[in-house]
């Protein structure tokens, strides 16, 4: 056995007392087993309820996408579409504008994620590993920017971008999204950097590494899960935004959320099956990417939560 293999501490088995008759011991074992089974069933029930709670909206989205429009509001509501149809999906095939919205969404979300991670990594590192006067005030100042109502910032940013000729550009979207993602990303990464021992950094300095080299060759690679978590958070923020994209992007740079509403939500009616089908189709690539990277998101978000 390798020396690195963890050794298992033997757990003492419950010993029957000499005066316990066999039927009593058997009854106790049976009670214990049934108690464990009860706990397992309760745990599974909780998982099923929570899972249902989380997945029912997704199922309803799929069911609505498969339902003919005149049956969407049928009463009583049906869990399974009575006459499922792929008409809503077929209607999407001819709508090239949706792919323009998808491209715009991907572009601004990726750029937002990259910019947020880039800036917040250096800010977070500074807050975590350097000590200077005003550091704590600056950290809270960064967080305080989260407290402004978004609608208030929207008008201010609109005027700012208008003055600099940035309206209806990707730049306006990426900058505005980054404004909202930076505070959380900075704090998230600071927490992550706090978990990297200073001794490691000291050792690199002793070996002659420059500060930049320490950051790029040691700290950032060790912080990959945190960086991915911050990037995913920023990506999702950019992907989901409605009001900033609607106001700042203009018709050609519009992203999916306003694009879908503009396409399927009308003055008098909403094309629910088409809207649900489009939401489903455009969500799939992102959902897959998210599932693939979710372990980093959880790891990144919880890092630094417990010190020890």
């Amino acid at each position: 056995m390798s020396a690195l293999t963890p050794t298992r501490t033997p757990v003492p088995r419950p010993q029957a007392t000499p005066d316990s008759p066999a039927p009593v011991r058997k009854a106790r074992r049976g009670a214990l087993r049934s108690e464990r089974r009860g706990v397992r069933i309760a745990a599974w029930a909780a998982v099923v309820v929570c899972g249902g709670f989380a997945l029912l909206p997704v199922y309803w989205l799929l069911a609505t996408a498969l339902t003919p429009r005149e049956q969407v509001f049928a009463y009583p509501p049906r869990l399974f579409p009575a006459a499922p149809t792929l008409d809503a999906f077929a209607a999407l095939a001819g709508n090239e504008q949706l792919f323009v919205y998808l491209r715009n969404s991907l572009l601004v979300s990726v750029l937002t994620a990259v910019l947020s991670v880039l800036v917040s990594a250096y800010m977070g590192y500074s807050f975590s590993k350097f000590r200077y006067r005003g550091r704590r005030s600056l950290m809270y100042f960064v967080l305080a920017s989260q407290m402004f109502p978004q609608a208030l910032l929207l008008v201010t940013l609109y005027s700012l971008f208008s003055a600099y000729g940035l309206l209806n550009t990707y730049t306006a979207l990426v900058l505005s999204f980054t404004t909202f993602t930076l505070p959380l990303c900075v704090w998230m990464l600071k927490g992550f950097f706090d978990t990297i021992p200073d001794e490691l950094i000291e050792a690199a300095r002793v070996d002659g590494a420059s500060r930049l080299r320490i950051i790029h060759a040691i700290v950032l690679p060790l912080s990959a899960p945190g960086l991915i978590a911050a990037g995913l958070f920023a990506f999702v923020r950019g992907w989901n935004d409605f009001i900033f994209a609607l106001t700042l992007a203009g018709p050609e740079k519009q992203t999916l959320p306003p694009g879908l509403v503009n396409t399927f939500v009308g003055e008098a009616s909403t094309a629910w099956p088409e809207l649900m089908a489009a939401s489903l189709v455009v969500s799939l690539p992102v959902a897959i990417a998210f599932i693939a990277l979710q372990k980093y998101l959880v790891g990144g978000l919880t890092a630094g939560a417990v010190k020890g």
């Binding site: 500074s126 006067r133 005003g134 700012l160 200073d198 300095r205 010190k307």
Partner: peptide, 30 residues
């Protein structure tokens, strides 16, 4: 929790200047 590696001078006055600059930009934008 960890010993400071370095100290970069950022005085309170400088910090206030930076905050003032940010607030000024917002005001100008508005």
């Amino acid at each position: 929790a960890y010993p400071a590696l370095d100290t970069t001078a950022l005085s309170r006055r400088r910090l206030l200047q930076l905050i003032g600059l940010g607030a000024g930009t917002l005001t100008l934008a508005a």
